[in-house]
Amino acid sequence: MKIVVTGSLGNISKPLAEELIAKGHSVTVISSNPEKQKDIEKLGAKAAIGAMEDVDFLTESFTGADAVYCMIPPGDYFDPDFNQIEFYKQVGNNYAEAILKSNVKKVIHLSSIGGNMNKDNGQLITHTNVENIFKSLPEEVKITTLRPTSFYYNLFGFIPAIKSQGIIASNYGEDDKCPWVSPSDIAEVVAEELEGSFSERKVRYIVSEELTCNEIAKTLGEAIGKPDLKWILISDEDMLSGALSIGFNPKIAEGLIEMHKSIHNGKLLEDYYSSKPKFGKVKLKEFAKEFAKAYNQ
């Protein structure tokens, strides 16, 4: 198959490209960074260098492909001028237009848990908007919507607080149970779906392990030599104040606080639990080794 992979050589797209190439597929990797071209070609893929904001570039890159994998990077959470919601809409519309113009009929869309919700999902409304854009495509375009859960590597964001305060603190925590996922498990599912039948549109959740926040703190704490590490539940107001104090874009900070609140009250996870997805291979204990390396740098 001829497959186009967006996301450059990111945490998901690189292992995905490697797996697809190993299985004999012809892979084109889209990147906005010209410096990535040599690394992409070393993998055995074709490099398409251009911007997601450029519909003509996307159309040219998609033309002739049997399937495309579409994802949108989150952007810079610390840029005060970055409008993440409008950025996602723009790129989502560009993808949809390029899919139509290139006549691609098989699409994998990397969305997120919470992509089914029109409210109470905070910053994840960006994914809801793109899901709705893709739903507007003609029915002959078969779309598999993938909704991964919280990424393990998001936990790296807690390292400064652990070092300065000796705790993890958020407006969800303690006994709140959360599903987490490894990028490599996501890549495996994307590859599996790309080789699937595409007989109908469908949604699939992706998860590696479910753990309480206390269990996460214990595992990470043991890995970094702090076995008594705790994940403390704090108020929405304190969480927002902390995010703003370290320079978060105010709109993104508000969205993240609402998202975390929805984890704490369970609304964000309702549809996920109704689907009962199978677990992936990578467990937190394995990720904790990476976490410890980053913590000790």
Rank of each mutant, 00 (worst) to 15 (best):
K2Y: 02
V4D: 02
T6V: 10
I12E: 03
K14E: 11
I21A: 03
V29N: 01
K38S: 13
I49M: 08
G50V: 15
E53R: 01
E53F: 00
D54H: 09
D54F: 09
T59P: 08
E60T: 08
S61W: 11
F62I: 09
Y69M: 08
I72D: 00
P73K: 03
Y77R: 11
Q90V: 07
Q90L: 12
Q90C: 05
L100M: 05
K101I: 01
N118Y: 15
K119A: 13
N121M: 09
N132H: 14
I133F: 07
P138M: 06
I143F: 04
T145Y: 15
Y153K: 04
F158C: 01
F158K: 05
F158L: 02
D175R: 03
K177W: 04
K177E: 09
K177Q: 06
W180Y: 07
W180V: 09
V181G: 09
V189C: 01
A191L: 05
G196D: 04
L211K: 12
T212F: 08
K218H: 10
P227Y: 00
W231T: 02
I232V: 13
L233T: 12
S235Q: 07
E237P: 13
L240P: 12
S245P: 14
P250M: 00
M259E: 10
K261L: 05
K261F: 12
L269R: 04
G280F: 06
F287Y: 15
Y295H: 06
